[in-house]
Design a protein around this nucleic acid. Structure first.
Lengths: 118, 118
DNA sequence: ATTTTGTGGAACCAAAAGGTTGCATATATT
DNA sequence: AATATATGCAACCTTTTGGTTCCACAAAAT
């Protein structure tokens, strides 16, 4: 039973749940009311989210409110950030290419001006 | 057969594969050589990664080199970024609290100065 | 020409994931 | 006290996932 943030956010339903309770804390029924699936199914998703620390539970009488605690998402964005330089490098060389095109275009424009100006 | 980036990076083996070929393009055997599992297992992981666009294949003779193409990871980091304000907000109020503590401490220090200066 | 190497993929399997119904229990409401 | 509501969770089912072995085929190497 692997339970890390990467796996937690892999499921679209769980991402929706995160979206909902990030706005304001809700209890299971309130969350389940917005889905087709049963309360138990939502309960299981929420359990996974609490087990990996993306949600905390605040009890009020018999009701339990789920609160988003999304700092753990940093694990994911940190992992992604280490690769950003790779695709930025690619984009940089694209930019360079475009600049080169532009320089060439300038020359062409000059030629045009000289050769075809009306 | 859902095939989105969130699900693709959920598996730790696939994240390792991404890490490896981000350094330099490799073929299946080279990748599989670094894992305990079979070539076929790696082949399947790579297939998933290509199907969601995180990897492209460059063929050289009978060899196929996998290249990382990680721009799609933006989908994930964009999703995370929309929530950063939530946990930053929490950090902000912590900072405010610390500032308040510091202000109170200043007053205490002043009192100390007045009362206990040598 | 024959053998070796690199690869894709079918067929199969066990475990995990995501769902359900049904029941127990604690807290509010009447 | 009796009823209604909010919740946790066991038991069960189906589909997906991650793995395997085995075979086919194309390109290199001998």
């Amino acid at each position: 039973m692997r339970r890390d943030v990467f796996q937690a956010i892999a499921d679209p339903t769980r991402r929706e749940i995160i979206c909902m309770i990030a706005q304001k804390p809700l209890n299971v029924n309130a969350v389940a009311g917005n889905f087709e699936v049963s309360r138990t199914a939502i309960y299981k998703h929420v359990k996974i989210l609490t087990e990996c620390g993306l949600i905390v539970i605040k009890q009020h009488g018999r009701e339990r409110y789920y609160e988003a605690k999304l700092q753990k998402l940093n694990e994911v964005s940190d992992w992604i950030e280490q690769y950003r330089k790779f695709w930025n490098a690619k984009l940089d060389s694209l930019e360079e290419y475009l600049n080169k095109l532009q320089r060439e275009n300038k020359i062409t424009s000059k030629n045009k001006k000289h050769g075809k100006q009306k």
